[in-house]
Amino acid sequence: MTLLAVERIKLFSTRSPWWCAALALVITVGITALIAANTSTEFPLTVGVTQAFYTFGMYVVLVMAALAITTEYRFSTIRATFLAVPNRISALLAKTVVVSLLAGVIGELVAFGSWGISKLIKPDVNIAINTAQEWRNVAGVGAVFFVGAIFAIAIGTLLRHTAGAVALLLVWALVVESLVGIIPKIGDDIQRWMPFVNGNRFLTAGTEPFPGEPVINYPFGAWGSLGYFAAISVGLLIVAFVVAKRRDA
């Protein structure tokens, strides 16, 4: 518990998590508000539409999580941490728990904020959250943010360089996983195993795809996709812990 308290103090004593949290909320809720205001009978407002832009907030949270670890290496404060806590894995695990929990909270704020602003803009449209699928679509955003933060911390721990970690995370999530599907013959088979694609599958399983959205034959159901995303992230984190334990700080 002491390590968790220390990591919480370290995290919230810097400006980056506050700015990233605010930016994730403003961007995601703002875009959702614009879309909700322009929905019509041809493009109706649904619960799924209110959550269609959660990825904008997630990208900011990925940056926040990477910064939480890479800035310690940048300013060499990680050396003091490892001197105070010789068990490096315990220190890194405490940081992962704190940052990931914060990411999950931001995800819930983003999700329900987007739903709330849509309801406020179009009060006559029925977007009540009634079914288990709709609850997963909204409340599940926090779980995806939580797992995504673990993935980002693992990358940051492995690379230790802010620019490199942020660039890799954004290129992977924004470009690689989107474009891998256009590879002839094998693209679809590869894309259905991508971690962030499966995270999105957890949220959108059972909903109607948007016009022009590619239909992917996923290997798992909704909860299986989240489990797969979590397994990839935790596996990568374990590798990062082993590497961090063996090399110099």
Rank of each mutant, 00 (worst) to 15 (best):
A37H: 04
T46D: 12
A22N: 08
T131N: 07
F202W: 05
R201T: 15
F56M: 12
T81R: 05
Q133F: 03
P44N: 08
L93I: 13
V125S: 12
A84V: 06
E208F: 11
A91K: 04
T204R: 15
V97F: 02
E7A: 10
N137H: 12
I89F: 08
V197K: 15
L83R: 03
F210T: 13
I183R: 03
G206Y: 04
L236M: 13
G181Q: 13
V176S: 03
L45M: 08
F75N: 14
V105D: 01
L174V: 15
N126T: 13
E208L: 13
V125M: 07
F146V: 09
A165H: 00
G156S: 03
L120I: 09
A36V: 01
L45Y: 10
L3D: 11
V234A: 10
W223C: 02
I117R: 09
T39F: 06
L226M: 04
F56R: 11
H161G: 00
A33P: 09
I186G: 08
G227F: 05
I186E: 03
F12L: 14
G181P: 10
Y73F: 15
S114K: 08
I150L: 09
A36I: 01
I232G: 04
A249H: 06
R8I: 09
T14D: 08
P211L: 03
L93M: 08
P195G: 11
